[in-house]
Computed example of a mutant assay.
Amino acid sequence: MAVPQSHTEKVSVIRNFTDITKMRLSVSVVFSSVAGYLLGCETIDFYILLLLTIGGYCMVGASNVFNQIIERDLDALMDRTKNRPIPAGRMSVSSAFILATLLTIIGISVLYVINPQTAMFGAISIFMYVSLYTPLKTKTPLAVFVGAFPGAIPFMLGWVAATNDFGIEPGTLFMIQFFWQFPHFWAIGWFLFDDYKKGGFYMLPNGKRDRGTAIQVLLYSVWTVLASLIPAVGVTGRLYITPVSAILIAGIGVWLLYYAYRLYKKQTNKAAKQLMLVSVSYITLLQIIYVADKFIR
């Protein structure tokens, strides 16, 4: 039985949209924003939560689309990215640009309805990701440092959306996710080193899969865990976790450090991939523990 052409085109449009906005990544970023909102709010406003979800997805999606427009020729060189909509010929550059522009306008407008500070941080995130991080990726390993700033904004963005205020609490959430970026992205840069090399990307701190890079991964993993435990000390205002949650955070912190140490000892692609997976689990579990701690205590 033949599939109607309209159905096929609809499926193709949806696939292109989810691919070019990197749906899984965007959803994980929205998850961080929602966690930040739940930590900051006095009572849950589901209307604000809906706006944050829509605006957050549009914000991240726009960044990803602009990124893929700029890197389309390099994406075509790498196995990991050659089947993305633009290099694969499933979407034109002009169509992608229109989509990115619409997502930017919608995202910032929706975040502005929440409050102006949330919209401002959303706009800063898009600007830094597209105008600074993306062009620096082919020029210097410092690109990961620059990219860590927009990458760390979503967790704190949720708190700002809930409170219309930037203080010690969202600053702490920002710091946690900022340090976390380094072991996460350097692990990816390690096991995808050869593929990144085809596109001319500099993702590792010293450009090599060696002991020096592994030491930095381990150090930033330590700082990530230490930053994650600061709310247990009671110096971060309304952001506080109980001793029980601190023990849980310390436990998953040891888990993260173990795999960072394994990369240091083994220096293999397998160890790097394992660390990447553990790092994703770490930040997700941390956010769940933080939120659960607030609503259970």
Rank of each mutant, 00 (worst) to 15 (best):
R262F: 07
I105E: 01
Q117K: 12
A272H: 14
F145V: 00
F193V: 03
M175K: 07
F191Y: 14
L285F: 15
F178Y: 15
K10M: 14
L256D: 06
F182S: 01
T138D: 11
F174D: 02
L204W: 06
T21M: 10
P141F: 12
F121I: 12
T242C: 00
T53N: 07
R72K: 11
L173P: 03
F121N: 06
I48R: 13
Y259T: 14
M59F: 03
A88D: 08
D19I: 15
P150E: 04
L256C: 09
Y264S: 01
R297I: 04
W190S: 07
T242K: 02
Y259Q: 14
N206F: 13
I247L: 15
D75K: 07
H7D: 04
G56P: 03
Y196T: 10
F121R: 04
L275P: 10
L257H: 10
Y220N: 09
Q5H: 13
A76T: 00
W190D: 05
Q181E: 02
G36H: 12
V280G: 07
Y196S: 06
G56T: 05
S95K: 12
T21N: 14
T8F: 01
R209P: 08
I54S: 11
T118N: 06
I241K: 06
Q68T: 03
S28T: 07
Q216K: 14
P170N: 12
S221M: 09
I124Y: 05
F193C: 02
F46P: 02
Y47M: 14
I105G: 01
V60E: 14
N16S: 15
I69T: 03
L277Y: 04
L51V: 06
V280W: 04
I70Y: 13
P141V: 12
T236Q: 05
H7P: 00
A148V: 08
T172K: 03
R209N: 11
F127Q: 01
M23P: 00
V280D: 03
V278H: 11
I252Q: 11
V27M: 12
A260D: 04
K139V: 04
L218N: 11
T81I: 02
Y202W: 05
T213A: 11
V233Q: 05
M91F: 10
Q216I: 10
L285W: 11
W159A: 04
Q5T: 15
E71R: 13
D195N: 00
F66P: 06
F295E: 09
F66E: 04
L218Y: 15
V110Y: 14
M23E: 02
T101W: 10
A143D: 03
V144E: 06
G151W: 03
S228F: 04
S109I: 00
V13P: 14
F97Y: 13
T101P: 14
G107W: 08
A272K: 13
P183G: 07
A187F: 01
I283S: 08
V130Y: 05
G151Q: 05
I108N: 00
N83V: 08
A76F: 00
F66G: 02
L142P: 02
D210K: 14
V130L: 11
I215S: 07
V65Q: 08
L111A: 09
K82S: 15
V3F: 06
F179N: 05
G158Q: 08
Y57K: 11
C41N: 09
K294W: 07
T224M: 15
D45Y: 09
